Simulated assay, not measured.
Amino acid sequence: MLDAALIKECADPSLKPAIVEQFVAAAGSTDPLAVTVKSGGRLILVPKATSADEAMAIVRQYAGRAVVRVGLTQFPAGVGVKEPADLKPDLVDACQNLRKGTAMFAKVLRIVLKWYGNPTSKDVFPQIFEDAVYAWKTGEFEGVSVFQEEDPGNSVTMETGTPPSEDTVNTDASPEGEKTESSEQSQSVGSAEMRIDLSRIGGK
């Protein structure tokens, strides 16, 4: 289980801690140095890294020629990077990997939720989460490359545990102007203001 302090400090704030834990449990790794390499759908056996340098050497060796996943969130190495040499060691830093991975997964969740028509019933969220995890593992959802796809942004809000309100799009108390300004100032993928709480999945 992920350390609560690590989640609080590093995970994307749009994801509740419970869903961060479930995401990493379903799609990630307990080892910050974990590197998984697949080619043609087949797993390629690589040496277990014992240091950040070793992990990055493996990543750079296969990036661009195979599907490489790294760290706690099994982040897809090479997304947005043109040359393997441009890959940064923060991929194997627990905090940075969790930050980047949860931000990207939040975007994937919003893409899946939008495809479902932005439902407000909490009953459909287990299926949405399952589809989002599958999309994270495969990189695709309904023919869309989720890692390159544009973020739907905070037009999507996921709130389970509360009944649909009269305002199902913006359940946050902040004024619309503040939300717009915040999303414009956001620099990282998936950091648009929103709350995702799927904590009731699996009885948690």
Rank of each mutant, 00 (worst) to 15 (best):
Q96G: 10
Q96D: 10
C10A: 10
S121C: 11
G78K: 01
E166L: 11
A52H: 09
M158L: 07
A34Q: 06
I7N: 05
V70G: 06
V79S: 07
E181C: 15
V92T: 09
K88R: 09
K179D: 13
T162P: 05
P47D: 10
V20N: 05
P47Q: 07
K8D: 13
A77I: 00
R42H: 07
A135S: 00
I44Q: 13
E140Y: 15
F75V: 02
V59G: 05
P17W: 01
G71I: 03
L198K: 11
S199K: 05
V35M: 05
Q187F: 07
A55Q: 12
V70F: 10
V79G: 03
I196M: 04
E54D: 13
G28N: 05
G101S: 08
S165F: 14
G101F: 09
I44K: 11
A55D: 09
W136N: 04
C95V: 08
I201V: 07
V112R: 01
A66R: 08
A4E: 15
G64R: 06
D53K: 14
T168M: 02
T180A: 12
Q22R: 15
E181D: 15
T138Q: 05
T171K: 06
Q148K: 14
K204H: 09
W115T: 09
S188A: 10
D53F: 10
E181H: 14
R195S: 12
R200H: 10
R110Y: 04
Q127W: 00
L109Q: 02
C10K: 06
L113F: 01
Q22N: 15
L33T: 14
L45P: 02
A5I: 02
D123S: 11
M56G: 14
R65N: 04
A4V: 15
L109P: 00
L109C: 04
P89G: 08
A5K: 03
Y62C: 08
V124Y: 00
A27V: 03
K100M: 11
D167N: 13
P47K: 09
L91K: 03
F75D: 02
R200C: 06
A4W: 14
G101I: 12
L109N: 01
V92F: 02
P175Q: 01
L91M: 02
D90G: 08
F141D: 12
L98T: 12
F147I: 03
L113C: 00
G78E: 02
L43T: 10
I201R: 05
L33H: 13
